[in-house]
């Protein structure tokens, strides 16, 4: 009886080990992660509007059907990145994802940036150059330091009324996504 109880205890401990292995390896083993989906959609230095979510249609990224989304991919190896433009006076937000799908930075237009979006993305080495004033950037540019050189920027825009959707999406598509000339 005691021996059976010890085996059960061993089973519980082994189960906890299995649990930890499952939790820690799942992000690497999963195929339909946000990182792989962003990689499939994002284009280098180009704004891509994500399809509007239609009723009944697949929505693997779980996008909010009330919002419009713009996505762009940046490679910071050669130079810092910049996403800029003017957006309508409505709620919008910007978030920066790394290649694992984690959000490195996010903000909304309530943070005092109004209608003007101007985000500069710098890797740690470029941030150091920035601190040493060896890089010229726009006045008022929002400086974001990234851990990695490959990043995705997602801009969310909320049209106040459905009838304004096309006009807002057109404004979103005019955003600029590029590397800064240094």
């Amino acid at each position: 009886m005691v021996r059976t109880a010890l085996y059960v205890l061993g089973g519980i401990l082994l189960g906890l080990a299995i649990h930890l292995v499952v939790i820690l390896t799942l992000p690497q083993l999963a195929t339909g992660t946000v990182a792989t989906r962003l990689a499939g959609l994002g284009q280098l230095d180009k704004i891509v509007l994500l399809d509007t979510v239609k009723p009944g249609a697949p929505n693997p990224l779980r996008l909010d059907p009330e919002l419009d989304y713009a996505l762009c991919r940046l490679d910071l190896r050669s130079a810092p990145g910049q996403v800029s433009g003017t957006l309508p006076l409505s709620f919008w937000s910007v978030s920066v994802y790394d290649t694992t799908g984690s959000v490195l930075y996010s903000t909304t237009n309530r943070d005092g940036i109004g209608q003007t979006l101007n985000v500069g993305l710098f890797d740690p080495a470029q941030t150091r150059l920035l601190a040493e004033q060896k890089l010229d950037i726009d006045t008022g540019q929002l400086i974001v330091e990234t851990k990695t050189d490959d990043v995705y920027v997602v801009v969310r825009l909320a049209p106040p009324q459905p009838v304004m959707r096309d006009r807002y999406a057109a404004q979103l598509s005019k955003l600029s996504c590029k590397n800064i000339k240094t």
Binding site: I23, L26, P27, R37, S93, V103, S106
Partner: peptide
Amino acid sequence: YTRAYLARTGALQLGQGE
């Protein structure tokens, strides 16, 4: 755990500031 949850759902999560 949150990382594993995100991998399982595949959803484009909101940033903390959003």
